[in-house]
Amino acid sequence: MCLAIPAKVLSIEGYQAEAEIAGVTRQISLRLTPEVKVGDWVLLHTGYAINVIDEDAAKETLKLLEEMCEVY
């Protein structure tokens, strides 16, 4: 349900932005995430950024995983 993938925002014009995933680009809408800045990563679902990806949280989760798995 609700396929969404991380995309990087390249440029912004009003509510429109150009986003990129591995060289693939598309005009996306920032209506749901007006706080986005150029260079941010967003979760892209049906052409709309539905959330900004929290890069710190992403790192923390990976660190947590490393720690959790240390003893195994």
Binding site: A4, R31, L32, T33, P34, E35, L43, I50, N51, I53, D54, E55, A57, A58, E60, T61
Partner: peptide, 18 residues
């Protein structure tokens, strides 16, 4: 939350509002 990079406890308030 096992997906903290994409999900905050309160969610996306702006999207909820719209």
């Amino acid at each position: 939350i096992a997906y903290r990079r994409g999900v905050r406890p309160e969610g996306n308030l702006r999207a909820q509002e719209i």
